[in-house]
């Protein structure tokens, strides 16, 4: 059986000449919790964005469920994106809109243009939005403005928005980098729950190794755009850590 996602010889160079990824290959099996580690600027964010084609790779291929999605366009691309939920470091909610509206925007991919603009989301979708909010524990905030919530709460709304897509896979780009330690664990716990209970594959960029050891089932490490490590989280020894983060790096723990 084919892997859920397979990345082959992926390279990306930005228009300004910066090479973010160099010949990266790996694959992810259904149900994994894969964590991508590496310094800022090592290409983690670029990698994630190529998987749902927010960024076009310069060369190489991405296969999703055995299908080459590297060059698809239009409806095909939107269908592909619809199957993959994404959450971001800065949550990227529509601050002026209500929490429930933000969650409903997760269903834009399967809602017609006119229907969505006139605010006519389908009944099952409205129901699913409420359930998604309940799952992340903020059903009582449904009618509040999204920007009135705390960082951790906003990230949970973003998770609910991703759940709204009924995704096969979740991409999380530094989901806890702007949150405090306690809130970080809460957000990571929700991701773990979704991974374990629904079997949704998660690919997550993280900075803190303590979080990596707690949540990851497998780890890949990028250094200056190259894949330098692939294995179980407890295989990241002191030596590997220095190799990935540089000689001067000191591990900081988040409990």
């Amino acid at each position: 059986m084919a892997s859920l996602i397979e990345v082959k010889n992926l390279s990306h160079t930005y228009p300004n000449g910066f090479t973010a990824l160099k010949n990266v290959s790996f694959s992810v099996e259904e149900g994994e919790f894969l964590v991508v580690i590496g310094l800022s600027g090592s290409g983690k964010s670029t990698l994630l964005r190529i998987l749902n084609r927010l960024i076009e790779p310069t060369s190489g291929n991405v296969f999703f469920k055995g299908l080459d999605v590297t060059r698809i366009e239009g409806d095909e691309l939107r269908t592909h994106r619809g199957q993959i939920g994404m959450i971001f470091q800065h949550f990227n909610l529509i601050g002026r809109h209500s929490v429930i509206s933000n969650v409903l925007y997760g269903s834009l991919g399967r809602t017609g243009t006119l229907q969505s603009i006139s605010g006519g989301f389908s009944k099952p979708d409205v129901q699913l939005a409420k359930e998604s909010l309940l799952r992340v524990g903020i059903a009582d905030k449904a009618e509040n403005r999204a920007d009135s919530l705390s960082g951790g709460q906003q990230q949970r709304v973003a998770i609910a928005r991703a759940l709204m897509q009924r995704p096969r896979m979740l991409l999380a780009d530094e989901p806890v980098a702007s949150l405090d330690p306690a809130t970080s664990h809460s957000v990571m716990n929700y991701l773990e729950q979704i991974n374990k209970e629904q079997g949704t594959t998660v690919i997550c960029n993280l900075h803190f190794l303590s979080l990596v050891r707690k949540y990851a089932t497998r780890v890949v490490a990028l250094k200056a755009g190259e894949l330098v490590f692939e294995g179980k989280p407890d295989a990241i020894t002191e030596e590997w850590f220095k190799a990935i983060y540089g000689e001067d790096a000191i591990e900081v723990e988040i409990r």
Binding site: G85, N92, I94, Y105, L108, T113, R161
Partner: peptide, 21 residues
């Protein structure tokens, strides 16, 4: 540009992205 990324990532088309993000 964050919300634009987020809305595009849900599979929204360009009109929806303009309207919602």
């Amino acid at each position: 540009s964050g919300p634009i990324e987020a809305i595009s990532a849900t599979g929204a088309n360009s009109i929806q992205t303009i309207w919602f993000a």
